[in-house]
Amino acid sequence: MSTAVQIQNLSFAYGSKQALHDVSLDMPARKVTAFIGPSGCGKSTLIRCINRINDRISTAHVTAGTIKVHGIDIYRKDINIQELRRRVGMVFQKYNPFAKSIYENVAYGLRIAGMTNRSDIDDAVEKSLRNAALWDEVGDRLHTSAFGLSGGQQQRLCIARAIATEPEILLMDEPCAALDPLATLRIEELISELKKKFTIVIVTHNMAQAARCSDQTAFMYLGKLVEVGPTMKIFENPSDPQTEAYITGSFG
C-alpha cells in the first residue's frame, strides 16, 4: 500500500502563534483518513497545509518538518503550486459554488488549466457530475444558476468541481458541517464511492461520521497529534486516555 501524503514532524505557525506541534503521520493512497478533535485543535490547519492554501495568509508558515505528497516535499522552493493544487483538490466547509451556471462551475478548473476543446469539457463535466452523484438531478439543467440547488446539492457540486481536474488527493474540510442529516448521508455514500479513485482526507466534528466512512482516524488536540490508527482501533480500543475521553464524550 503506497503512501499518498507523508507528514513528518510538522510544526506550523500563524505569525507567532504556534498552531501545529510536531505532527507526523502517513496517509495511505485510496483510503479515507479522518481527523477528529475539538475546534481549534489544528485539524483544518493541517489539511490546509497539504494543498498550501494557507499560503494566502501572509503570516502563516511552516516552522519545522516536511509534508511529502507522493514523495515530493511540497514546501520546496521550486514547487509548482498551481499544479500541486490541481493534484490535491479541496472541498470547503461552507459550500461555495461560484455565482455561475452548474456547468461553468464544474468547467472552471478545466478552463483555468488550459482546456479549451468544448466537447472535452462537456465530457469531463458530465463525468465529474456522475462521479459526484449529481448528474441524475441536474443533468437537464446544467446551464441554470448553481444557487438554485439545495445545500446538499451545492456541496456535491463543489465536490464535482474539485474532482473535475482529476486530482490524486481530495481534502474535505468538514464537508457536511452546513448540511442536514440526509444530505450528509449522501455525501458519506459519495465518499465511499470516491475513495476507489481518490485518496481522501476528511476533517469532521461528527465522530459517528469518522467511524462510518474512514479507514484511518487521527485524533488531534491543542495542535498535537494525540493518536492515529485504523478507525476500528481508535473507536473501539484507543491507546491514549485523551482519545478515549474524547470519543466517549467525557470532554470536548
Binding site: 494543498n51 492554501i53 494566502r56 498551481q82 499544479e83 500541486l84 493544487r85 490541481r86 483538490g89 479541496m90 470547503f92 461552507k94 461555495n96 459554488p97 461560484f98 455565482a99 472552471y108 478548473g109 483555468i112 488549466a113 463543489c158 468541481r161 474539485a162 481536474t165
Partner: peptide
Amino acid sequence: GFRDASLAMGG
C-alpha cells in the same frame, strides 16, 4: 469562498 475555491483548483 470564491477565491478559496479558485485557488484550491489551481488558479
